[in-house]
Design a protein around this nucleic acid. Sequence first.
DNA 1: CTGAAAGCGCTTACAG
DNA 2: CTGAAAGCGCTTACAG
Lengths: 341, 341
Amino acid sequence: MPVTLKDIAEKLNISITTVSKALKDYPDVSKKTKRLVKETASLLNYKPNSFAVNLRTKESKTIGLIIPEIVHHFFSSVINGIINQAEKKGYLVIILQSNESYELEKKQIDLLLAKRVDGILISLANESTDYSHLNEILNQNVPLVMFDKIAKLVNCSKVIINDRQAAAIATQHLIDIGCKHIAHFRGPLLPQNSIDRFLGYKKTLLDNNLKYDSSLVYISDDMSFENGKTNISKMLSEHEHVDGIFINTDLVAVGAIAELNNRGIKVPEDIAIVGFSNWFMSSVISPKLTTINQPGFDMGKQSFKLLYKEIKASKKNNPLVPKTVVLDTDLIIRETTSSTR
Amino acid sequence: MPVTLKDIAEKLNISITTVSKALKDYPDVSKKTKRLVKETASLLNYKPNSFAVNLRTKESKTIGLIIPEIVHHFFSSVINGIINQAEKKGYLVIILQSNESYELEKKQIDLLLAKRVDGILISLANESTDYSHLNEILNQNVPLVMFDKIAKLVNCSKVIINDRQAAAIATQHLIDIGCKHIAHFRGPLLPQNSIDRFLGYKKTLLDNNLKYDSSLVYISDDMSFENGKTNISKMLSEHEHVDGIFINTDLVAVGAIAELNNRGIKVPEDIAIVGFSNWFMSSVISPKLTTINQPGFDMGKQSFKLLYKEIKASKKNNPLVPKTVVLDTDLIIRETTSSTR
DNA sequence: CTGAAAGCGCTTACAG
DNA sequence: CTGAAAGCGCTTACAG
């Protein structure tokens, strides 16, 4: 049986109240009593029963995190940033994976709300179009922060990168090294970041007086290695002059490069490529991938920090005005866009 | 304010007791009352207060997971297997990262015990030599299952692969394709799987009447890409005839291959390589890496299953005899050991 | 079939 | 400086 306040009180012949106050350093307890209580507590290896504390204080120092996919370099970096920062502030993190499914995401939010976590961090599933489950969180006054894959219309704090700008920088880089016919492998239609990267690509073409041709835009349904291969095959059968591709995510880019290698098409001489995310893998393949570095760890850290502030504020019944933090990205130039291989 | 049993009771003019029993389908409540209570509960959107339930039932349906590193293909697969299986059984998972540090691991175990999780899953940090923190878990009668990086001497259930056998198969494969001077890049000295893989390598050499030369064994301190490059450099400066290397983990192998590529040394013609883990990356580099496939997802799944059984048993005060589950691995032959490139 | 009562282990407003 | 008491929201043994 675990030791309780009662055990300490009985041992010292004082009240439970005094024991509790002594342990929490209330000013109205004598030094002597405090010393005695603390000694006894550590002697008996007393640990407060968190279940009771939770019930009394109505908080569990636990937050929930829902992520589309854990086995994913970017997201696991974000997780790392989150639990790192959370631990510093004394919070634990329950992690759930939506598998890009709206239904699962919804169920998991219910789970976390039933669990009465102190706050929720979420990166949306690609499938999620309806936001009632997210508003449900806000209705219950549970602090919510969205990151990376967000819903613009939900009124909560967000941590994102400037996808449109990053995509513009990537596309401009292809133009700068001389590409004239630039294709784009985009993500699914719904996620905001997939849309923004596409818009950044399109705008940059037009800003440079290059023609935008919608048939040069290919969709990677599940953002996989295979998608990269099939998109390349499709593209090559439909277009002859493509000399550069801006690809929504590194994994697809790696698949694309593999297929180009197979076909003996030279990267970057025949077709230059820029990816997105800066997975570790990208620096290890041949040729090494030029890509946009996305600060996963920092995104996790900032997301928790925002959530933490909201938790504090909501405890004081003093809710914060939602805020959007935009993190910097940078272009990492490697072999798939440099001719000095 | 969240709805409580009391709210429902007052609305229906019955007792809290009856409401509670009706919701849990106790047989001694009339059908009519049950219907009424359930209707009202769903009308008011009643959710049991988990804090109160935890305090009463002394369980939280939450387990803790400590892992050395999250941003790691193998471990993130294990996490995936664990939370997947846990969710099916109605358990949530709190994840912590030890960063391969013994001190952190110890602190995190304290955290989880203070939190009174229903059970703990752990894969040990490389640094951990002392096991008192693990025995502390057992002393408090909290179910514990170790996986992958285990301590043989701790008396709990375990889920592992047969590292020695897998290493033997990898080494034998190098011998079978004709290698005569086989080096080994091993992991740090402490972890059991690093020891076992080394032993499998050594034994296989001897079984094949090849000489075991300890100077052909190099240590990768932090199992990094860089370790692979520096080990290769060191090895090439010390030995001339090496024609095969069995490398403890894929990331190091990828670094090794990169360095060999840089130096114009042909893989597998000059030096053949077998890795360990089957990271996604391994099938994407050039040449593609022959490796041992380690079933991460399944290891997570089995670990949770074992823990779940122990939780059930310990609730009935009927503790299980610790059990070790050994999962199968297989050799994936790719280009770094095949001459048909 | 229904309900009063005890109790899980804390915290804290209040009295002395 | 100390402590009795109420209460957080449930569950369940027991009485009727």
